[in-house]
């Protein structure tokens, strides 16, 4: 009896050691980012390399804000992100509603096509879209980055559709009997009910827009219109890379995302799990 108990204790201790090691591994890049940002550049390049700064400095942060017009880029990024989120929130539930709560033949066709569009690599559609926007004189505006959000994205539609599937039809049926038309049923009953799913969509849309790289890379070339992710890249265009400064800029770029994640962690987890399991 005692032996078994002892073995169990050892096993659980081993398990904790494993978890702590894994956590340390996954956290180490964040740690490196943070500590490097608090070092002087010459400290970062001194052997032996130490994880912690020899002398704690905050200079890299103001310096990083000067090297690139950080607040300008921040405003640009926020602008793109907000419009993208808005677009997704307007369109996603509508389409999802059509696919799961209206009985029509197109629903299954569209559901199939949704899956198919998720398989189209961006590079395949990139060139014709670029040409079109370019001919419409829309490069160097945010329209190419925002516009697609107002037409829905397969992944988000699937999240909300999945959620709608879980709603009993009887509620909508009752409203129909009360004489509510389709739009009223959607806006007064379905939409308020799918709030959790929409929160998830908003979070994903926020992250996608915030981190987007390839589209801004292609469409934005004027320096004052760049986004933060492109701005970060500018540190690499110098003849020598100031790593401590770059890490400070990265901390500033990543922090909002981490805060956001910690607040909405539950929605994240559900969103990812739902689409992964049921799609």
């Amino acid at each position: 009896m005692g032996v078994i108990k002892g073995r169990k204790a050892v096993a659980s201790l081993m398990f904790y050691v494993l978890v702590i090691c894994l956590c340390a591994i996954f956290l180490s890049p964040f740690l490196v980012m943070l500590t490097t940002s608090l070092k002087t550049n010459s400290d970062a390049f001194t052997i032996p390399v130490k994880l912690l700064p020899r002398k704690l400095v905050l200079d890299n942060y103001p310096a990083a804000l000067r090297t690139i017009p950080y607040f300008k880029y921040l405003m640009n990024t926020v602008q793109i992100t907000l419009f993208s989120v808005l677009g997704q929130l307007l369109v996603t539930p509508m389409v999802a509603y059509s696919l799961s709560k209206i009985k029509w033949k197109g629903a299954s066709v569209i559901s199939g096509l949704l899956m198919a569009t998720m398989m189209i690599p961006y590079t395949v559609t990139m060139i014709p879209l670029y040409r079109t926007y370019s001919q419409l004189h829309l490069t160097n505006t945010y329209i190419p980055l925002i516009l697609p959000a107002f037409f829905g994205k397969a992944y988000y539609i699937l999240i909300v559709r999945q959620f709608f599937h879980g709603l009993p039809n009887s509620i909508l049926e009752a409203a129909r009997i009360d004489g509510a038309n389709e739009f009223q049923r959607y806006s007064r009953i379905a939409l308020p009910l799918c709030k959790p799913a929409l929160t998830t969509v908003a979070i994903f849309a926020f992250l996608d827009a915030w981190s987007d790289y390839l589209a801004p890379l292609i469409y934005i070339s004027k320096p004052n219109r760049l986004t933060l992710s492109l701005g970060l890249q500018q540190f690499m265009n110098e003849y020598s890379v100031k790593w401590a400064e770059l890490m400070a800029a990265a901390v500033l770029f990543v922090t909002p995302v981490i805060v956001f994640f910690l607040i909405f962690q539950r929605n994240f987890v559900q969103g990812v799990a739902v689409t992964g399991l049921k799609a």
């Binding site: 996954f26 890049p29 981190s211 970060l232 890249q233 770029f253």
Partner: peptide, 16 residues
């Protein structure tokens, strides 16, 4: 902690 890396922007992760 395990999930966090997949949330942060790829460009920042790559630079680190």
């Amino acid at each position: 902690i395990f999930f966090l890396p997949s949330v942060i922007p790829m460009i920042a992760a790559t630079m680190v």
